[in-house]
Structures are given as C-alpha cells and as structure tokens.
Design a binder for these strands. Structure first.
Lengths: 351, 351
DNA sequence: TTGTATGCGTTATCAT
DNA sequence: ATGATAACGCATACAA
C-alpha cells in the first residue's frame, strides 16, 4: 500500500525518504537515481530504488525541488485572454515548444486590463519561473510602464529571463512579427486587385501592434498609388462589437462610397462584416473585407476571409528558445507576416 | 537598491529574511505581517515591515510557501487541447472562478492522447495542487483507466480533491452537463420543425459524452414519432475533417435522401457543412445542420448554427466549488444543456 | 505580542 | 560510489 500514515485519515504524500528507506539506501542516493542527472549509482541500488519508487507511487515534490535547486522548470506566460482564439493558439504553441524541452507553462491572464500586467508579473515572479514571456497586448502608453520595467529588471537580476512577444517597446528580449510589413503587403495586393476607397478600422484602445498594422496598410496603399484622400482611418472599440457598431454608425453615403474594409484583427473584420450585412450589403459583391491574424477557427466563415498570416509556431519557438537560452546581447527577432488573399476580396470587376 | 548581492553578477532574490532584517524585526514577525492571517503585530512593526517589503520589492517565494504549508494555492486543470475553442472557453471560465478566490490554475494538455492523462496526473500531483480537475474528454474504455483511478485515489488520500467534468464514469466528484437530455430536446424540436430523415455523426473515437449525445438525439427522434429506420448513425473521425470527409464519401442517393445532419460537436457540424457545400448543396435550403456546444466564436458562420447550449460558466463554477470544498459524500451535479434553434435548421417548407 | 527553534522535501557539499 | 549534513525560504509550535 502506498502513502504513509498520517495523524488523521489523510496519508502523507510519499517522499524520497520513504523510497530510500524502502529500498534500503540513503536518501541522497534515491535522489540521484530518480532525479539527479549524473548517473553514478550502482546498478543494483538503482534497480531497488526504481522498484521502490514505482511500488510506492513516488512523485517528486516540485515545490521542494524548486526550492532546493533554486529554480523551477516553469515558464510563466502572460496573455490577455485565454478564450481569444489568437491567444489560445499562441499559448498552445508555446506550451508545445516548452513541453518539448521538459518545461511547464504557467498561464496568467490580464483580462485586457492594462495595469494588471504589473500585478501578474509580481505574482508570477513568486513562482520562481525560469522565464517570463509577456505575450499580452502591449499598450502604447501604459500607466505603470516604468514600474513594470523595474519589476522585470529585478526579475532578470535574479537570473530570470524575460521575453516579449509583439511589443518591441521595452528593453527586453523581443520576438515580434512584422505587423507593418504584413499589412503593407496586404494593402499592395489589394490595391493590385483594384481596391482604392478603403476604410481602415484600427483599435480604439491604443495598442502598439495595432497601430503598426494601420500604418503599414496606409503606407502600402500610398505606395500603390492610391490617393491619400481615398483612405479613411477610424479607431472603434477593439472588438467584434466595436467594429460592428462602427459600421452601423456610418451614413449611407459613406458606406456606398466604400470598396473595402480592412480591420486590424480578424475578430474586428468579422464584426464589420456582420454590421455591413445587417445594413443589407452583400459581401464581397458590394464591399470587400480583410483582417489580420489568420485565425484558423474562422475557416468556416463565408466568404473566406482575406487576412495576414502570422507564423505563430515560429513565434512560439523563437520565444521559448530565447526564454531558455542565456544570450549576452539583447536581440529583436521579427517573424514574417504575409497576406493571404481569399474570397472576401475578389478582384474588382472593372479591374 | 533591491536584490541582495550574490557571488556572480546575479542577485539573490529578496527573501523574508532580508525584509525582516531591513525592518529590524524577526523573520516570523515579517511573515505574520506579509503572509500570515491572524494579525497580531504591533502597528509600528507592521508599518516598518510593509515599508521594507515595498522598498525591497519583496515577493513571497511560492514554492517555499507551498512546502512550508504543505499545500499550494494551485488548482491543476487537465484538458485535451487548449487551441480548441470549447476547451479554451472552459479553461477561461475555470481560471476566472479560481482567481476570484485567490487560486492559480495550472493547465496541462493531453493533446487528445488517451493515455497521456495518467502521466499528466502524476506530474501534476508533484505540484502539490489543492485539487485536480479533469476536463479532458473521457474515453469509453481507456487502456489505463484503473491506473488513473489508483493515481487519483492516491492523490485524494493525501488530501487533494479530484473533480471530473463531463465524464461521469469514474468514482469521483463529477460535474456533468446533460448531454443526453440536451440532444434529446434538440431532436424533438427539430422533429417539430419537420425533420425526419437525419444523419447523425457521432465520434469515431469512443468518447462517453459523445455517445450520450448520439443516444439522446436518437431517443428524441423516436419519441417524436420519427420512424426508426429514417435515422442513420455513423461515427467518423472526431474532428472537422472527419465529418467533412465522411459526408464527401456518401453516395449521391444517400445525400439526396437527407433532410438534416446532426453532429455531436459544432466543430464536426461545420466540417459536415463544408463537405456538403463542396458537393454543391445549399445549406440550409437543401439540408439542415445542427451541432452541439454552442461555441461563441462561431457567431459569424452563415447560416447561424443550430446547436445545444451548455452553460460553461455554471459548469466551471460548480467544478471550482467542488474542488475547494471538502464534502463528505460523493455527488454528481448535472448542468442543463438546451437546444438553440438557429438559421441552419429552418422549418421545413411542407411542414 | 515577539522571537527562537524546528521542520517541510529536495539538492548539493562534503567527507568517507 | 555512497552516506551524513547543510542549505533553500517560509510557517509554525513553543518559549519568552
């Protein structure tokens, strides 16, 4: 029977000590067999320890290991919202990469509150993780930015690694994807299809990456010879509902004039799509729609959404690599993002 | 300056001892102020400790606390796949509920491998969590079921709580939703709309909850007076692709005869939808479609999908409650699931 | 009320 | 190669 007897009805968890005793060896020897790296234990002992551990159902006490070793096998990940397909995909990729090298990922969510990031980092630091990866949306001018930087620096000073994803505004290891270039190329392709009079839906909440997407798109249009005045940029609420409400608030004349709506996320693009349909417009016959992120669970929306694809697995791989590799100099790797033209933006007829 | 000086360039994390020293009090006093519950520390000391902690940027070492207390403030959650909208929604709800009472959720994924569950539970047990919630899909006849049960029992014996979600096959605290009743009601409503000749797509991998959904649907049809012979049940691969491939493999005659496809998940329903469209069928004019789960990110699918809604927040709340409350008797709570008729299953014309 | 001493389960440093 | 012993950071029983 496993589990040692305790005071009450609950048993004490099986410890290394129990295993060692059962195997008739010292506790450090049991440790060397079960957890240690440099194997220099006699085969006979080895087997006995392994057998005893199996018999008793021994599981190493991770907190104890973390304390003894001074470091855990955990990576802390901060994201905005786990139910958001973009972030859940990101989290999934990071977990995959981390688990491949035997690391556990501890997820914390900000729920989109800018100032929660600081609190979370503080809490996470208490878990003694190997690294902290900040993948949440980076705000343009967060209220407590300096405190966050201080907190992260403090963490780095104790040997922790800090990796930022998609927010190259802070002095830490950064993995970015090319928001600007991605939407710039998208704009060029769309211009090539004949689209000229575009409505750009940015983010009402000031987010760095979203801003870049807007800039890139506008740049791409200008480079393609689309008259500056043809492009209208607005910043509704950063959500499906925000985009929908905005297109519903447009005047009939404004909508009639439009050939395309580009929203900085797929989510918003679909909100715009819903709003336009409510107004009786046909998509893509009357107006084209494009987004950004290439969220895979949207494969079933009709028409298929033109968007910008980001290689999340590459981002995750790079992030985990940086999170686990001690590198002297600070680097910023940018993962490419490229447009994917689908049915929501067919070539314009007169083109 | 914060962070004590270490041997090399890295500083040692600030400990309670550092804080106590800085405040000129003993370490237990600092502990009582910062972490302890029963406040019986002189106000003057209290302030000095708080001040010192703030100054030094103290964060409690969670592993150390866990070891000293013998229990952590963590709930371990096992799910199948984090990128699956159903599971990410579930995880989000559980995290929300847990955080509301100051608990952290540690997520582990099986990647849909039936036997990984056992390994994960073993690993998770090492984290000394308060509770383990198994929300991953329950297989009908998992290879290592007895071992899993043993492992979970062992965990319970050491004071841990075990909660199962949507798999009432094992002898533990269970929160279920009414798969059978949900699809039974759905079938009755659809029969009421005139649907009679139905294709039911179950799950090729033997999953308990999915089996119940099939049974419930068939029961509902029979109760509604739909001839038994009219219903065809099949079990393609448990995925979008599985459902799509299956409907593509049907003969033209088989498809022509169909009035409705009910798939046991929204994901599969959309796969079937995609496949049917590839065959040139119009949805819902030529054939109706219904799913199960009511995944919110599918709001943009056209036509809007008829499905069975599950109150995930209620499930999560119940699960976290059970995970944190010591209750003598074993209980199985069932959260209702109810059909939501949408545009993908309009009333049949001749009806 | 406050401080001293001890223990949590593990790893690491030492003798042996 | 193996075992005794000292950390790790914190909480707690106990003494003051």
């Amino acid at each position: 029977m496993n589990g040692m007897l305790g005071d009450s009805g609950v048993r004490r968890p099986v410890t290394l000590d129990d295993v060692a005793r059962a195997a008739g060896v010292s506790q450090p020897t049991a440790s060397r067999v079960l957890n240690g790296s440099s194997r220099k234990v006699a085969e006979s002992y080895r087997e006995r320890v392994l057998e005893a551990a199996r018999e008793l159902g021994y599981t190493p006490n991770l907190p104890a290991q973390a304390m003894a070793r001074g470091t855990s096998r955990t990576i802390a990940l901060v994201i905005s919202l786990i139910s958001d397909p973009y972030f859940s995909a990101m989290a999934a990729e990071i977990m995959k990469q981390a688990e491949a090298i035997g690391l556990h990922v501890s997820i914390a969510v900000t729920e989109r509150q800018a100032d929660r990031e600081l609190d979370l980092v503080r809490e996470l630091r208490g878990q003694q993780p190997r690294a902290i990866i900040l993948a949440g949306t980076g705000y343009v001018d967060p209220p407590s930015e300096q405190q966050l930087v201080d907190e992260l620096h403090r963490y780095e000073e104790t040997g922790g690694r800090v990796v930022l994803i998609s927010r190259s505004d802070l002095p830490f290891e950064t993995v970015d994807f090319d928001n600007h270039e991605g939407s710039r190329q998208l704009a060029r392709e769309l211009a090539g299809l004949g689209y000229e009079r575009c409505l750009v839906l940015g983010s009402g909440t000031p987010l760095l990456s979203m801003r870049r997407r807007v800039e890139g798109f506008v740049t791409g249009l200008v480079e393609s010879g689309v008259a500056d005045a043809a492009t209208r940029v607005h910043h509704p609420g950063f959500s499906w509902a925000g985009a929908r409400d905005f297109v519903l608030s447009l005047t009939e004349a404004e909508v009639r004039d439009l050939q395309l709506v580009f929203a900085v996320t797929d989510d918003m693009a679909l909100g715009a799509l819903a709003g336009l349909r409510e107004r009786g417009l046909r998509i893509p016959e009357d107006i084209g729609i494009a987004g950004f992120d290439d969220i895979s669970t949207l494969r079933d929306v009709v028409p298929k959404l033109t968007t910008v694809h980001v290689a999340l697995n590459a981002v995750a791989q790079e992030a985990v690599y940086r999170a686990t590799t001690t590198d002297a100099e600070l680097t910023r790797r940018t993962v490419p993002a490229y447009p994917v033209i689908r049915a929501s933006t067919p070539p314009l007829p007169q083109h």
